[in-house]
Design a binder for these strands. Structure first.
Length: 224
DNA sequence: GCGACAG
DNA sequence: ATCTTGTCGC
């Protein structure tokens, strides 16, 4: 798919924060997505103490979740891991992998937060704005916000609140397992985000999209 | 000031 | 994220 040239990339934390404060104005948290027939999952992995970044994209047909396209990319890491600035470390490699995809997804599920972020610009929101595709943040743990333990049943959830603002949902995709931290990335509402995450996680705690991308990013070290 | 802190 | 086998529990 066509990817806008990420001409310049920040080098310092202060620079990255300034970019987030600017891009946050572009985030849309209302439903602005068409018919969804293709859902993608993206994930990243590292090698050599983080020197190399591996990215993987898995495109699945929706709603049967059959893998129809995939791509991987490997590149030198350019930004350190700093809580709140994760996207600057992982997005460069993700864009390289997305560029190789031939089927453009209608929706992308990302590892990490959407607007459930200190400045409302987690990796899902950041990526969504850069490529202008609807995105949802699916985190395995908390970054910011407070919440009550959600009901222990599949579909049970409770709001994630930060500074009096609802920024996401703590959702259980399986009874008896830790919940996921869901938040709108870009062009998707919270309600819709919850619905798609549940629809994409029919059997395991994590969405099929995420699981497939994860496996691809891991097996990259086995082959070429 | 102290602690928390996606992957 | 990553280093890694077996092991405990539903």
């Amino acid at each position: 798919m066509q990817i806008p040239s990420a001409a310049y990339w920040p080098t310092t934390a202060a620079e990255a924060v300034a970019i987030q404060n600017d891009l946050r104005k572009q985030v849309i948290t209302t439903d602005q997505l068409g018919h969804v027939s293709l859902v993608a999952g993206v994930d990243v992995g590292f090698e050599n103490d983080g020197e190399i970044t591996r990215a993987a994209v898995a495109v699945l047909r929706y709603p049967d979740l059959v893998l129809v396209d995939q791509a991987i990319a490997k590149t030198p890491t350019r930004f350190p891991y700093i809580p709140g600035l994760l996207s600057f470390r992982e997005i460069p490699a993700l864009l390289m992998a997305l560029e190789k995809i031939t089927k453009v997804p209608d929706l992308i599920l990302c590892d990490g937060q959407g607007i459930a972020h200190p400045r409302r610009l987690g990796i899902a929101s950041h990526l969504g704005i850069l490529i202008d595709v609807p995105t949802i943040g699916v985190g395995k743990s908390l970054l910011v916000g407070k919440y009550e333990t959600p009901p222990d049943e599949r579909g049970g959830w409770s709001p994630l609140v930060h500074y009096k603002e609802t920024i996401g949902a703590v959702l259980r995709t399986r009874k008896g397992f830790n919940p996921l931290f869901i938040s709108p990335g870009h062009r998707v509402s919270l309600e819709t985000s919850i619905a798609y995450v549940l629809a994409c996680s029919p059997k395991y705690r994590l969405p099929e999209t995420t699981r497939m991308a994860h496996h691809m990013a891991s097996n990259m070290k086995d082959d070429k």
